[in-house]
């Protein structure tokens, strides 16, 4: 199979100044995605610890590993956690979770926590899908759309081009922006057809950078049309792996005539789903108490 150009670090974190023993409600959100698994542990609705790692072939095991790693060094055990919500692609396969909630609801809720209540539109560009979500100032979803049928506009589609051009995926964005003049976008949306089109352009003597620019702008346009369907409102944020591809993000912002909010320094946007799930868990504990 293809060489893996998609690289990122696995890591965990715990709050240096909080003590979970002081908290009334401890909840966790576990987000088992197709590529990465994340856990967020919250003490009274404040982020206390988290972990982010690669998803293995077995999702229950990946879920267990990520929550264990988030609890590592905190003295917490599963028994101390009042409620666990599972989300993401593997959400129904998490034995220790009490409820499964879609990543759509969790992403919106998490984005509301990370960026604040001004967030009204969340675009999540993942490895195998692309989601556009609209929410209110409480992080409740008002409209969503998900595209997981077609590889165009997903990380997988980007990988196909990374392989075709032998360019590391994390460099694609910057390379595509290194030209003075923007070429015409590739005309095919379909990744398979776009690939043959790109091969033709390379044979005609186009540089890798120019082909990348043409592809990134086609992908940006495609994501734009998805967003248009639900209607974009400020503030707007982008999460998921392709949010790191400046080549797509910059062009999308130009088309939307809107700039995405910058990544807040204290949180990794990839944690949005897990954080949202942990917040739902807290609300569910409170609902049970009532």
């Amino acid at each position: 199979m293809a060489k893996e150009f998609w690289r990122w670090k696995e890591y965990n974190w715990k709050s240096p100044d909080k003590d979970w023993k002081q908290a009334k409600i401890i909840t966790a959100g576990v987000d088992v995605g197709s590529v990465s698994s994340k856990t967020a542990i919250m003490a009274d609705g404040e982020l206390y610890a988290y972990s982010l790692m690669r998803t293995g072939s077995d999702s229950p095991q990946s879920a267990r590993k990520t929550i264990d790693w988030a609890m590592d060094g905190t003295g917490l055990t599963l028994d101390n956690i009042h409620y666990v919500v599972g989300t993401g692609y593997g959400r129904v396969n998490i034995p220790f979770s009490k409820k499964a909630i879609t990543e759509i609801a969790c992403h919106a809720r998490g984005a509301n926590y990370i960026w604040g209540q001004s967030v009204k539109t969340v675009l999540d560009m993942g490895g195998q899908d692309c989601k556009a979500i609209k929410c209110d100032d409480k992080g409740k979803v008002t409209a969503f759309l998900m595209n997981d049928k077609c590889a165009a506009g997903t990380g997988r589609g980007m990988e196909v081009f990374a392989d075709l051009l032998s360019v590391p995926i994390e460099e694609m964005g910057n390379l595509s922006l290194s030209l003075d003049k923007e070429p015409e976008p590739v005309s095919s949306t379909c990744v398979v057809f776009a690939k043959s089109e790109a091969l033709g352009l390379l044979r005609q003597g186009w540089s890798k950078e120019k082909v990348l620019a043409a592809y990134c702008s086609a992908m940006a346009h495609r994501v734009f049309t998805l967003l248009e369907k639900i209607g974009v409102e400020k503030d707007f944020v982008i999460t998921g792996g392709i949010s790191k591809n400046t080549g797509v993000v910059k062009r999308l912002e130009t088309e939307l005539k809107l700039t995405a909010l910058p990544k807040p320094p204290q949180y990794d946007p990839q944690l949005a789903g897990a954080i949202g799930a942990a917040l739902f868990a807290k609300a569910l504990v409170e609902k049970e108490k009532r």
Partner: peptide, 12 residues
Amino acid sequence: AQCAVFAESEVV
């Protein structure tokens, strides 16, 4: 999978 790109991974 419906998409040819995703179907390739499924075949693998």
